[in-house]
Design a protein around this nucleic acid. Sequence first.
DNA 1: GACCCCCACGTGATTTTATAACATTATCGC
DNA 2: GCGATAATGTTATAAAATCACGTGGGGGTC
Lengths: 172, 172
Amino acid sequence: MTRDERPLSADAPAPLGFETHDHSLCVGQALAEAETQCAQHGLRLTPVRRKVLELLLQEHRALGAYAILDLLRDAGFGSQPPVAYRALDFLVEHGFAHKIERLNAFVACAHPGESHSPAFMICRSCDAVAEAQSTPGKGALGAAARAAGFQIEKAVVEAEGLCPACTDKADA
Amino acid sequence: MTRDERPLSADAPAPLGFETHDHSLCVGQALAEAETQCAQHGLRLTPVRRKVLELLLQEHRALGAYAILDLLRDAGFGSQPPVAYRALDFLVEHGFAHKIERLNAFVACAHPGESHSPAFMICRSCDAVAEAQSTPGKGALGAAARAAGFQIEKAVVEAEGLCPACTDKADA
DNA sequence: GACCCCCACGTGATTTTATAACATTATCGC
DNA sequence: GCGATAATGTTATAAAATCACGTGGGGGTC
């Protein structure tokens, strides 16, 4: 948690997720990034783990553990729940993916490697998920925590609403 | 499941939830408040619903639906999951309780009646839950949402950490 | 009061999400 | 290669939530 507070205005890091982009490229980049991270930290990005990460990156939205499990089975991996959950646990523990509590689902991390405490924007219409940086300990919650003597260790921040594409669709 | 042995002394009202306070008083007040609200809005605070709210207020921490269900059974109500879930749905829908996504559990609302978007502080040691006001649309998340064109409709904000009492215990 | 309708409740069954427990296989340091 | 360790595969089960269907109570209307 050394990364610091920028005022997060217009030049905030783009909340990856709602823009159009070369997707196969970003999947490849993210996988390569994960490989590097694991090599550097002595972690093992095994075939199942790599596949799960790849699936999350490809789908680019929140996937339930059992949806992932189905895709794993199609890819010839084990098909029992622990297979998916263990891979997801690994990815989440090491910051390659996040769990969306609100959906009981998982997304690939949009900022792997950077220490961050994520905040999510979840489209209630298309299930797209964008990740932004949150600033736990700042703002109203931080003030309330200090006032109450509560020590924040981590925070779940998940906003639900309409993504730009679905807003346009609704307007039309 | 241990009964709470926290010392409850008559003290100042507890705006945030971690302070000690006259608990039976605040339960009664909150129930009365709920009755009033329901009467005003033409809602029916039926026996099951009232009992569930009472249980949540009494426990003063997050309770799982099945824990509530057990307590309901003890009190002579129906004992199948839908009984608890329907009552909880009602309470959550009308702002008398909130769901803590992180715990798959429910708490009584600390500020019934006021329109608010809640933020929670969850003690990982004793499961106590305090409710504060969050300010969705402000701060980092709001800025990111505006930048991305995302329309926030509601937000889940749940901080996990140590409450004052457990911090003291850990220090000792 | 008789009737009707709606809403809430009770219950059984099922779906979805997640973990426990244990045997087997792969990997790493030596 | 060898032993310790970590990861995987599999069976079984727990925990959380919902579906479907029947019953009954409280207000309205007449």
